[in-house]
Amino acid sequence: MTTSTTSTAAPPTTGIINPHATGTSLANQVGLLARRSVRSSLSSPAGYMPGIVMPLILLTINSSGLSAATRIPGFPADRYLDFAIVITFMQSALFATSSAGLGLVRDIESGFLDRLALTPMRAGALVVAQISGAIAIALGASLVYISIMFITQVDFHTGPLGVLALLGLSMWTAFSFATIGAWIALRSGESEALQGIFPLLFATLFLSTTNMPRDLIQADWFRAITRVNPVSYMVDAMRSLIITGWDGRVLLEGAGVLLAVSLIGVAGCARSLRRRMAKA
C-alpha cells in the first residue's frame, strides 16, 4: 500500500475559470428547491389530488354514516359535520408525510440528490425545501377545507382568529408529519418504505378520537389507545377551535404533542441526512 507523500493542498489562487461558482444563500437555495418541489407535485394531479379529494370523500362518508352519533347524550356538536370536518385537515397533514418523503426518495433514486450535492447547496436546504413544498400543498388543501366550512356553515366557535389558529395548527401538523416522511425517505432511500408507513398512519388516524369523543367510546381498549395515540391530541386541539371555543388545556396538549413529534422528526432528519450525505 502506498502511503501519502503529497504536500498539503494549497488553495488555488489563480486559474479560476468559474468566478461565479460561489453558490447562493441558504434562503435562496430553499426558495429555489421549494418552488421545484411544489411544481413537481403540481405537475402531476396524482401527486396532489389524493391529498385534497380523499379527505373530502372520507368526510362525506363519515358525516352521512355517523350522523346519528349526534343523538348520543353528551355528543359535543349539533351536527356531525361540525365534529368531523377536522378529519380533512388531519388527513391532509398525513399526506404531507408522503409528499415530502416521495420527493426526497425520487431525488435519491434518480441520482438527482447527487447532482444537487455537487453544487454549493447546503444539504439541509433540500430537506427544508421538500418539507416546505409539502406544507404548501397542505396549505392549499386547508384553504379548500376552510372554504367548505364556510359554505356548509360550520358553527365556528372561536371566530376569525380561530380560523387562523386552525390553519396554523393544521400547518404545524403537516410540518411534523412531513419531517417524519423526510426522515423515513432519507433513512431508507426507498419509496416502498414510505408506501409501507402510510397504512400505519391511517390506522393511527382511525384509532384516535377522529370519529368519536374519547368519553363516548365504549370499548376500553379503544379508549386506552386514543389516550396514547398522539393523533388524538392533534385532532382534539384542532376540533376544539371549531366546536368548543378557546380551550387552553386542549390546545396546550395538542401543541405539546406537535412539538414532540416535530422535534423527533427534525432530529431523525438531521441524523439521517448526515449519514446519507456522508461527504467531505
Binding site: 434518480s110 441520482g111 455537487l118
Partner: peptide, 29 residues
C-alpha cells in the same frame, strides 16, 4: 484542483463538474 477531497470537499465541489454513470435528472423539470 489543489483541494483535499477528504477535508476540503466544498472547495472541490466548486472546482469540478461531474456527469456520473447514471444520468441524474428530475423528470418533472
Amino acid at each position: 484542483a489543489g483541494w483535499d477531497v477528504a477535508t476540503q470537499g466544498s472547495h472541490v465541489r466548486t472546482a469540478i463538474g461531474a456527469a456520473l454513470q447514471a444520468v441524474a435528472l428530475d423528470k418533472f423539470l
